[in-house]
């Protein structure tokens, strides 16, 4: 569809010429419409459905929906909010599926699916020790599409962890972490750790046996940081120096909010899983993508000798 101005044309919708000045018998609405026509005759033309649709579309997108020339194709990327993070032109090598297997984009897509299905699950879920498991059963029995939503969240999460790992392998095997992309690799490692932590905080929420004991063990692992403070305290130190506090117990205590896994731990993991960690990982994803562009697009064999 090409964009062109639609000129006002055709007769006004209401008749009654403006030339004769006889006393009017029109109602107030007719009077108003005649007044509008006298002052701004193009208003009626602007209200014609085709023109209206055209002008609204143009105001939103600025570019044509089906670009034909090179210039229009570039503009389609420059002028679009969603597409402008990508280059308007791209190397043919970067498009080969067997080079990237689309793994980076795939993990972004899975994160998107996780966000959407997670937001919908929040309408049903209650982060309480008494109710959480019942709500899980409701998802499988009494909520329309509930089990599909939970399944999508579950499978997307598992797939995302695998895809992120494969993506890291791809980047390693193609040497794509080398200068100038070193720091983006570091961001990628952080993203992988964040993905694992999101998985860890997520599987307490159903409050089933797996949830409870996996978090018990996870908190136990955090408690083992005591090893560091115990060893520091056993080093020779000046008399009267305060001992290093037990780091592991402090971490465990902050994570669980209590001695054992219970209501406090559930609400903490819930807030981490649905609010804090998603915001943090989103910021890192955005930065990761910005860096791809700034570091010169995805890696290419032109950059180095064999």
């Amino acid at each position: 569809m090409s964009v062109k101005e639609l000129r006002p044309s055709g007769p006004p919708p209401s008749s009654g010429g403006s030339g004769s000045r006889r006393p009017s018998t029109d109602g107030p609405l007719t009077k108003l419409s005649k007044a509008i026509y006298r002052q701004a005759p193009e208003v009626w033309d602007n209200l014609r459905p085709l023109a209206l649709f055209h002008n609204i579309y143009k105001s939103v997108y600025r570019t044509t929906a089906f670009p034909k020339t090179e210039r229009e194709r570039s503009e389609a990327f420059f002028n679009s909010f969603l597409l402008h993070i990508q280059p308007a032109k791209i190397e043919k090598h970067a498009l080969r599926f067997t080079y990237t297997f689309g793994l980076g984009l795939l993990s972004t897509y899975l994160f998107l699916l996780l966000t959407i299905s997670g937001l919908l699950l929040m309408f049903v879920y209650v982060p309480s020790v008494q109710d959480a498991y019942g709500r899980m059963q409701d998802l499988h029995s009494s909520v329309s599409f509930g089990y599909i939503l939970r399944g999508m969240h579950f499978w997307s999460a598992n797939a995302m962890i695998a895809v992120v790992f494969f993506h890291m392998c791809r980047v390693f095997y193609t040497g794509a972490y080398k200068a100038p992309r070193e720091f983006n690799w570091v961001i990628g490692v952080i993203l992988m750790v964040l993905t694992l932590i999101l998985g860890f905080t997520g599987y307490l929420l159903p409050w089933d046996q797996l949830a409870f004991w996996a978090i018990t063990v996870g908190a136990g692992i955090a408690g083992k940081a005591n090893w560091i403070s115990d060893n520091l305290n056993s080093l020779p130190h000046p008399p009267g120096a305060p001992p290093v506090p037990p780091l592991g117990d402090l971490t465990r205590w902050a994570l669980l909010g209590s001695d054992t896994v219970g209501q406090e731990a559930l609400i903490r993991f819930y807030v981490l899983h649905v609010a804090i960690l998603p915001v943090i990982i989103t910021l890192f994803i955005v930065y990761h993508m910005w860096r791809i562009r700034k570091d010169g697009g995805i890696s290419s064999p032109k950059e180095s000798p064999e």
């Binding site: 059963q137 499988h140 599909i148 399944g151 499978w155 089933d208 949830a211």
Partner: peptide, 16 residues
């Protein structure tokens, strides 16, 4: 993902 979630629902173990 949709096919997996329809044909292989997410597991749920016994209550904690």
């Amino acid at each position: 993902i949709l096919a997996l979630s329809v044909f292989k629902p997410a597991p749920l173990e016994l209550e904690a």
